[in-house]
Nucleic acid binder design. Sequence first.
DNA 1: TTGACATATCGATGGATATCAATATATACT
DNA 2: AGTATATATTGATATCCATCGATATGTCAA
Lengths: 99, 99
Amino acid sequence: MTRALTHVEAVRSARVFAALSDPIRLRLYTLIAASDDEVCACSFVAAIGRSQPTVSHHLKILRDSGLVTGTKRGTWVWYRANPDIATEVTQLLPARISA
Amino acid sequence: MTRALTHVEAVRSARVFAALSDPIRLRLYTLIAASDDEVCACSFVAAIGRSQPTVSHHLKILRDSGLVTGTKRGTWVWYRANPDIATEVTQLLPARISA
DNA sequence: TTGACATATCGATGGATATCAATATATACT
DNA sequence: AGTATATATTGATATCCATCGATATGTCAA
C-alpha cells in the first residue's frame, strides 16, 4: 500500500532511487545483486566499460545509499547487495500484482 | 530474482528511477499513487510547497517516465498512477521478503 | 469580449553530476 | 627496498537539472 510521504521521508528515499537512476550504477547494482555471493570489484571495469575512477565513483554512491556493502580483503574489495534497502524503497511503490 | 542488465535495458529503467530520485517528485508520485482514484493537479502546489512552474516541470518528468498519466477535463488535469511501470522496475530489485 | 483561473512553456541561473587523466594509498610479491 | 596491482581521491570540464519569474495557452463564466 503506497502512502504519501513527508518531505523528510522523501529526501531519504529519493537518495536510494538516485543511486539507481544512472545506467552504469543500475548495471553495477544488478550485477552485484544477481549474485547471492560476493563479487570482486576487480571485474567491474571490464564488465561495465568505464574507466576505473568512474567505476569507483559509482560504487561509492551505491555504498553511500546502503544498497551495497564493500569489504576489503587483501588487495581486492568484495561487494554484496543489501536487500533490506531495496525492500525499503520498493514498499513505497504500488504493490506488484501478486504472482 | 534480480539479473544483470544490458546497457540498453539499464538506460530505459534508469529513467524510471530518475523520475523517483527527486524528493518533490517522490512526494507527488506517492500522493497520486496513494489514491486509488484520480487526483486533481490543482491541489499540488499547496501540498508540495513549490511554485506552479516547478510542479508542472516535475509532473512532466513523471508523465514521461510512464509512472503517471494526466487527463485534462475542462480546466483541470487529473492524475492517476500507472502501477505497471512501478512493478516493472520493482522486479529488477531483489525480491522483498515474502509476507 | 473581457476577466479569472489552471496548466504549460520559455529563459535564466545556480548547483549537482558523470567522466577521465593524474595521482595517492594500500597490499602483495620478490 | 622495489615493483606490480587494486582501489580511492583529486582536479578539471562539460553537461544535466531544479528552481522561479514571466509569459503563453486553454477553459469557463459573466
